[in-house]
C-alpha cells in the first residue's frame, strides 16, 4: 500500500513538474507585521484584476491567513507575466495579545487574534518551505531593517535559492530611508515604493516582470 502511495505521489510530482512552465509563478509577499504587505497585494491585484486580496489595517496581524490572488497578469513592454500573488501574515518571533489592546480591541478578541496571528506565522513559514516560487520581501522603510526576523527570513529565502526582491515601502512618509533598507540587504535589488499612495509602481511592475517572468 505504501508503494502505491509513493507511486501516486511521484506521478503527481512528475505531472506537476511537466506543466510547471505553463503555470503562473506563485510569488509570496513576505515581511514583518505592518510593513504594508496587504496594501501592496491589493494594489497589485486591483491594478491588474480589479479585485482586492484582503482588508488592510493599521492593526498589526490583520492578515492572519495567507490569501492568494491567482492569475494576476502583469503586462510590461508588450510582454505579459502571469503570477499568483500570495499575501502572507506578518512574520514575527513574538505575538502578544496586549499589542491588540492598544488598538481598542477587547481582551477576549485580542487573545483570539493573537492565537490566529501565531497560526498565521506558522502558515507563512510553511508556505515559504513548499509553496512559493519567488518572494517579494516588504519592509517598512521608516523602520530599522536590521532585525532578527528580517535576517532570518531573507537567509531562509536565499537558502532556498528563491528569486527575491526587497520592497522598501512607505516612502511617502517623511522618516523613510530607502538607503537604510538597501544597505541592509545589498545582495538583493531594493525597490522603493508607496503601496498606499501608488508611488513608483511602474518600477515595481517592471522589476516584478523582470524577476519573476
Amino acid at each position: 500500500m505504501g508503494l502505491l502511495t509513493e507511486l501516486r505521489s511521484s506521478i503527481s510530482r512528475a505531472t506537476s513538474s511537466l506543466f510547471a512552465g505553463s503555470e503562473p509563478k506563485r510569488i509570496g509577499i513576505y515581511g514583518p507585521p505592518n510593513a504594508g504587505k496587504t496594501t501592496l497585494a491589493n494594489r497589485i491585484a486591483r491594478d491588474w484584476t480589479g479585485d482586492a486580496v484582503g482588508p488592510e489595517s493599521h492593526v498589526p496581524h490583520e492578515t492572519r491567513r495567507a490569501r492568494r490572488k491567482e492569475n494576476v497578469e502583469i503586462k510590461r513592454n508588450g510582454k505579459s507575466v502571469t503570477i499568483d500573488v500570495v499575501d502572507t501574515p506578518g512574520v514575527t518571533t513574538k505575538v502578544d495579545y496586549k499589542e491588540f489592546l492598544e488598538h481598542d480591541i477587547e481582551e477576549d478578541d485580542a487573545v483570539r487574534r493573537s492565537r490566529e496571528a501565531t497560526e498565521g506565522v506558522a502558515e507563512a513559514m510553511h508556505w515559504l518551505r513548499e509553496d512559493v516560487d519567488g518572494v517579494i520581501y516588504v519592509l517598512d522603510s521608516t523602520e530599522d531593517p536590521f532585525t532578527q526576523v528580517n535576517t532570518m527570513l531573507v537567509g531562509i529565502i536565499e537558502s532556498q535559492d528563491l528569486p527575491v526582491l526587497i520592497f522598501a515601502n512607505k516612502i511617502d512618509l517623511e522618516e523613510a530611508s530607502v538607503q537604510r533598507v538597501s544597505n541592509a540587504f545589498p545582495q538583493h535589488e531594493t525597490v522603493p515604493l508607496s503601496a498606499l499612495e501608488g508611488d513608483n509602481m511602474d518600477e515595481v511592475y517592471d522589476t516584478i516582470a523582470e524577476h519573476f517572468g
Binding site: V91, T93, K94, V95, D96, K98, S114, T118, V149, M152
Partner: peptide, 8 residues
C-alpha cells in the same frame, strides 16, 4: 494564553 514565542 494570547502570548506566543515562535521559533521560525
Amino acid at each position: 494564553p494570547g502570548q506566543y514565542e515562535l521559533n521560525l
